[in-house]
């Protein structure tokens, strides 16, 4: 089970929303953060978020039980770790 944490700030709202829109993803609002959890890989399409590069590359605040296998101009992909 992998959890992506995004800072609960206006510039990251579209990123966390795209992450949360995946089938099977669950969203939880924590103090200061939006946490998106899934049993399988989590993939965020950068173009779907519509955010500028500076926001995109600073959007990921934390990763619980996952490994970032892609984080580039196309997508963020995080796979679960045992």
């Amino acid at each position: 089970m992998t959890t992506l944490y995004f800072l609960d700030a206006a510039e990251f709202t579209d990123v966390s929303a795209v992450a949360a829109a995946q089938p099977g993803a669950r969203v939880e609002r924590l103090p200061g953060y939006v946490a998106v959890t899934a049993d399988g890989p989590l993939i965020v399409d950068r173009r779907a978020t519509g955010v500028r590069h500076s926001v995109w590359y600073s959007a990921l605040a934390a990763v619980g039980h996952g490994r970032v296998v892609q984080y580039d101009k196309d997508a963020l992909k995080v796979e679960p770790t045992p």
Binding site: Y5, L30, P31, A61, G64
Partner: peptide, 16 residues
Amino acid sequence: LDALWARKAELIASRV
């Protein structure tokens, strides 16, 4: 950065 992301997740979870 990967280690930082992982450690932050632990700290955030511990605050909840």
